[in-house]
């Protein structure tokens, strides 16, 4: 399967998009026709399917596997105005040794911070193999001019970010200006160079599942390596039905173009039970190919603690408590 991690220019992406759409010129009209030609989402059916997948019972050895897999998929996140260098360092220390009581605990996939903290995180994580992800493009609102967004991205990449989490211009998307959204994503992708690009759609602001589907396709068309639900700053954040729509989109996108794109639900996933529901859904909707940190991530902070408590329960046989994990 081809992987679109390589650096791509905005021109390449526009050319590839023209091929997918089968048009000679990439106009807003062409994008609108294509996106609005996608089948609509059956809201009731989608929610019922998500709810029914959430009832699967995952126990004992399967649960142990799910917990370790979920820990390995976490983008350990701190995105607060009050973030300090010390807080980022302690978060990185936690990523390196999630559970000091049990060295067999897997490490999370990445640490996700604001752009100005990338250098700090990079230094703390050194060559551990844990990625540093940076939010960019005027996160979380995305309300800045394109040059500012690109500079924000280049800054983070220059500081050593392995992954960039960008936000789309929801205002442009909701007013039907898909070409602007496309161009911005493509230009940010170009600015990323070799860094992975995650495209945050902020599904809580997109209102309908149809919009989520359209935004997913638009993000993939414009070169996103991952599609991500939310910034975590808007409620509702990640939900099961929204993630279901996105998983269907990446599955169908691979059928259509041969390119595999990852999915990252973020925000509001706090318990092991929730995480396992997502894993079940990944397996059932997108397929086993997506069950790895390369293709599926959780954007979360408190989720890790709950996973660690459950892991301790499985290893020791006794219920654990918040005294046995770090406060973050």
């Amino acid at each position: 399967m081809t992987v679109s991690t390589a650096a791509r220019t905005a021109q390449d992406l526009a050319a590839a998009a023209k091929d997918v759409l089968g048009v000679s010129r990439l106009t807003n009209h062409a994008l609108t026709t294509w996106l609005h030609g996608l089948p609509g989402v059956d809201q009731v059916g989608c929610e019922a399917r998500a709810a029914s997948l959430g009832t699967r019972s995952i126990k004992t050895s399967a649960k142990a596997w799910a917990i370790d897999t979920a820990i390995g998929m976490i983008d350990l996140t701190t995105l607060e105005g009050s973030d300090t260098v010390g807080k980022v360092r302690s978060l990185c220390a936690k990523a390196l040794v999630p559970d000091p009581l049990d060295p067999t605990t897997p490490r999370p996939a990445a640490v996700c911070v604001y752009g100005d903290m990338v250098a700090t995180a990079k230094e703390a994580l050194a060559d551990s193999g844990i990625h540093v992800a940076a939010v960019a493009t005027a996160f979380p609102s995305g309300r800045a001019s394109v040059p500012v967004k690109l500079l924000d991205t280049r800054d983070a990449v220059k500081a050593g970010a392995d992954e960039i989490d960008m936000v789309i211009d929801r205002g442009a998307f909701l007013s039907g200006d898909y070409l602007t959204v496309f161009n911005q994503i493509a230009e940010v992708k170009q600015a990323c160079g070799d860094a992975h690009l995650k495209v945050i759609m902020e599904t809580g602001e997109l209102v309908t599942y149809d919009n989520v589907r359209r935004a997913s396709y638009l993000s993939m068309l414009a070169g996103g390596d991952f599609i991500k639900t939310s910034t975590g700053k808007v409620s509702p954040a990640a939900t099961l039905p929204v993630t279901l729509v996105m998983l269907e989109a990446v599955r169908d996108w691979r059928e259509l173009t041969g390119v595999q794109v990852g999915v990252k639900p973020a925000g509001g996933i706090r318990t092991t039970k929730d995480a396992i529901k997502y894993l079940v859904m990944v397996n059932e909707i997108a397929g086993e190919d997506w069950l790895s940190p390369e293709w599926f991530r959780f954007g979360a902070s408190s989720l890790l603690n709950d996973l660690l408590l459950q892991r301790q329960k499985l290893t020791t046989g006794a219920y654990s408590g918040p005294d046995y994990v770090t406060i973050d």
């Binding site: 020791t316 046989g317 006794a318 219920y319 654990s320 408590g321 918040p322 005294d323 046995y324």
Partner: peptide, 9 residues
């Protein structure tokens, strides 16, 4: 036994 072994009690 679960209550006695619970580490948050």
């Amino acid at each position: 036994p679960w209550l006695a072994a619970h580490r948050d009690v």
